[in-house]
């Protein structure tokens, strides 16, 4: 009886050993799904970035991002999840950088446009001053002629 109890207990000791794969497998399945979700989210974000990049200032960076996402997807497929996460971390940093670069490009374009407008305005001021000077001179000469 005791021996049987010991055998049963011994078999219980082995239970975690049998259970481990059962515990690990769902965990590994969740990680792949998470990576897939993350990659898909990043890809959608990529489309947003392309749309935002009106100045096409970040074509190369976005292409790099796309390559990195492909790389991450490949790593996920190869179940190399840790490296895939590292790549995704890099993707995230690159994405942040691209977003700011797009903003910078937009702001630079805006500033350039304002500066161009300013140049036009200055040109207009110069032309107006010239015209005003000419008219004033003409007016002065006409004023002298008038009684």
């Amino acid at each position: 009886m005791r021996i049987q109890k010991i055998r049963w207990l011994s078999s219980l000791r082995l239970l975690p050993l049998f259970m481990l794969p059962l515990l690990v497998m769902p965990a590994l399945g969740d990680e792949a799904d998470d990576l897939q979700l993350m990659i898909e989210r990043e890809r959608r974000g990529l489309q947003d970035l392309r749309r935002l990049d009106e100045q096409r200032a970040c074509d190369a960076e976005i292409t790099t991002l796309e390559n990195w996402l492909n790389e991450a997807w490949k790593l996920r497929g190869e179940e190399d999840y840790e490296i895939a996460k590292v790549v995704l971390e890099r993707v995230d940093a690159q994405k942040d950088m691209v977003r700011e670069k797009i903003s910078a490009a937009r702001l630079k374009a805006e500033a350039s446009k304002l500066e161009a407008d300013l140049a036009v305005a200055r040109k207009r001021i110069k032309a107006l001053k010239k015209e005003l000077a000419e008219l004033s001179s003409k007016k002065a000469s006409m004023g002298e002629k008038s009684p």
């Binding site: 950088m97 700011e100 670069k101 903003s103 910078a104 702001l107 630079k108 805006e110 500033a111």
Partner: peptide
């Protein structure tokens, strides 16, 4: 990029 934003 942030610096450039600030400059811009």
């Amino acid at each position: 990029a942030l610096s450039e934003q600030k400059d811009a």
